[in-house]
Amino acid sequence: MKLLYFAWLRQKIGIAEETLDLPPGVETVAALIDWLKTRGPNYAAALDNTKLVRVAVNREYVTYDHRLNAGDEVGLFPPVTGG
């Protein structure tokens, strides 16, 4: 699975992207975020307030109950501010 981080989420986590295997038991977006938060204080800080974390799977917005697949591209980012 490919994970991409943007804007202040990218800055707080410290990397723009990473590739990893989905751990056993992590089947949804919500579970992925909970697991990421255990990987270090940088992840915990970036993902602390999930009201400010939007999620896209394969470049489409999804809700936190969306089920993940091994080859997914998952983007995590703050609410958008373009235009």
Binding site: G75, F77, P78, P79, T81
Partner: peptide
């Protein structure tokens, strides 16, 4: 289109000022 773009298109603004830079909040 501009109203939808502002809430759906994945862009993020980082503003720089003399006091430093900050991400614009939605």
């Amino acid at each position: 289109m501009i109203d939808w773009l502002k809430t759906k298109a994945p862009f993020w603004k980082l503003e720089a000022t003399d006091a430093g830079s900050h991400w614009v909040e939605a």
